[in-house]
Structures are given as C-alpha cells and as structure tokens.
Simulated scan of single mutants.
Amino acid sequence: MVVANTNDNAYTPTIVAQIRYLLQWFREWSEMERGDFLPVLVHGFGANGGAINGLLPIMESLCKEDGRPLSLFKCRIKLFTEWVQTWSDDDKESFLSGIRSIDMDFAERYQQKASAYVVSSSEHCNGINGDLNVEEVI
C-alpha cells in the first residue's frame, strides 16, 4: 500500500514497507556505510524522537555534494531521516529487531551509542534538559 504525501503530492510507502526497504538496504551496505549510518540511527531514534529543528546536522553534512546528485547511499539516509519522524516506538523496535537479526555487532554498537546519547542529550535539547518535566522548566 502506498500513501499520498500531502507536502508535494509524492507517494510515501507505508511504515511497514519503509522498514522492509531500510532493512534490505542495510543488508546491502558495506561496513563503512553501516558505520556512517550508526550516528544517524542513534540521532533518529534518540530521546527526543528524531530530528530537532529540521534536518539532522549529520544529514546536512552528507547532503553537500557541490551541485552533484546524491549517492544512492545518501538518498537512502535522507529517506530514513524523513520516514523515521513518523514512526511509533513499536515501529522503531521492529526496525531494531530486524537490525539485530542481520548484524548483532552493529546492534550492540548502536545500543552503546544510544546509551551515551541519552546521557549527553541535554546539550541537544535547545537548552532544556530532556529529563525535566515541562512544568519544572516553565
């Protein structure tokens, strides 16, 4: 099933299809590409649920190609950063489960980085510590 994207009349696959695509692409990626994907995944699944203030800083650096078209890998990373913003926690867990079944070492590296990201994420929250209640900040 394909769902219409209201932003630009393009079509976006269902979340189940998005996860299938991403897992297939993950299987095809080299170790270097998986290494490049790791910080994107950590940030996309971070404590704040994904991109903050638009595109990830990582994506911004990946997208600078001096007028040349993006590589296939970078296009796929761009799709991941767009798609993951609409995923539920269950969708994210389904994706991580697929990653674990493909590459347990990568999954363990993700878990280590994600744990460190949560600890240091207060600096990425526009000055608001992610552990505080909204009432405490106001």
Rank of each mutant, 00 (worst) to 15 (best):
P69Y: 08
L70M: 05
I99W: 02
W87T: 01
D90K: 06
S61R: 08
R100Y: 13
G98L: 04
K92Q: 13
Q85W: 07
E82F: 06
D66C: 14
F73Q: 03
F80V: 01
S94H: 11
S101F: 15
F73C: 04
D103P: 00
W87K: 00
M59E: 08
M59D: 06
R100L: 09
C63S: 14
S97L: 15
F80S: 01
Q111M: 09
R100P: 04
W83L: 06
K64F: 13
I102G: 00
E65L: 10
E60S: 14
N53I: 09
T81L: 04
A107L: 10
I52E: 04
Q111G: 13
Q85S: 14
E108C: 09
Q111P: 07
S101Y: 15
L72V: 15
E108P: 02
D105H: 12
N53F: 11
S101Q: 15
I52S: 02
P57T: 11
P69E: 11
K64P: 06
D66S: 15
S94P: 10
I52T: 06
L62A: 05
Q111I: 13
V84A: 03
K74A: 11
L56F: 10
Q85N: 12
M104C: 08
P69W: 08
Q111E: 15
L96G: 01
R100S: 12
G54K: 05
I77N: 00
P69Q: 07
C75I: 10
